[in-house]
Simulated assay, not measured.
Amino acid sequence: MKLETTFHPSTPHILIEGGVEFHLGTMKGDTILYDFPKMLRYLDAKGKLLFGKKFKIHEEDQEILYQLCSYFIKDEISCAKFNIDPTKGIMLSGPIGCGKTTLMKLLRHLVPHHRPYEIIPTRNIVFGFNNLGYSIIEQYGNSNFYCFDDLGVEPEGKHFGKDCNVMGEILLSRHELFLKNPVPERSRGVTHITTNLNAEEIEDRYGNRVRSRLREMVNVIGFDKTTKDKRK
């Protein structure tokens, strides 16, 4: 089954999935006026294509989705309302099974005319470090667009007997590029993160230095801690 989203560069608000057109809004000059209910209908349809017919948009998640959609379409008014900086990345936090990874895999299809990001499980990055060493930190500490999935579940890295907090080092490297290259996105990259950890747990796991720099790199959007496990 072909899962690629198709669109015409002159009408990026019209997405085609399986021969069906989804109009996410209307064009006014060179500006797209997005319609949130229409975006939800598209995300529900795309989600079923990507994850199976059991996928659905849960009503209790719509507030989170509204914030995420506002970020991805760069709606300055809505972003300001939620204190979201569209030039930063997203750290999507919440309990296990609330749907963080699913949403980050899904929402990148909403704006196929924007530069895509690659979703990388943090465990895989550490396993790569254990085999290849510090070149892995250079590989992911660059200006590419990444979503680091499940930050905090990865083990400590170890290469030739030397321990390393691999993800902590990668985030610090990306922060340096973020500050050196003030032009949004193009030269400094964007860092997205999904995590089950809260701010205090991030500090315990990676230290205050990483926690403070994350504040400068990402917008924190969080599910309520009582959100149910959707995998059950």
Rank of each mutant, 00 (worst) to 15 (best):
E4T: 15
T5P: 06
F7W: 09
H8E: 14
P9I: 05
V20P: 01
L24Q: 01
L24T: 00
T26M: 09
G29S: 04
D30N: 13
L33P: 04
Y34F: 13
L40D: 04
L40N: 04
Y42I: 07
L43C: 11
L43Y: 07
A45N: 14
K48N: 09
I64S: 02
L68S: 01
C69Y: 05
Y71D: 06
F72Q: 07
F72N: 05
I73R: 04
D75I: 06
E76F: 13
A80Y: 03
D85N: 15
D85E: 09
K88V: 07
M91D: 07
I96M: 03
G99V: 07
T102L: 03
T102G: 01
L107F: 00
Y117I: 02
E118N: 11
E118S: 12
I119H: 09
I120C: 03
F127M: 15
L132A: 09
Q139A: 13
Y140V: 15
G141N: 01
S143D: 12
S143I: 06
N144G: 12
F145W: 08
F145N: 12
Y146D: 03
C147G: 08
D149K: 15
D150F: 07
K158S: 14
H159E: 06
F160V: 15
G161Q: 09
K162R: 13
K162N: 12
D163T: 15
M167K: 04
R174F: 03
L177A: 00
F178T: 05
V183F: 12
P184I: 02
E185L: 12
H192E: 07
H192W: 12
L197W: 10
A199W: 05
E200F: 13
D204A: 15
G207W: 09
N208D: 06
S212N: 13
R213E: 02
K228C: 01
K228D: 05
K230R: 13
K230Q: 05
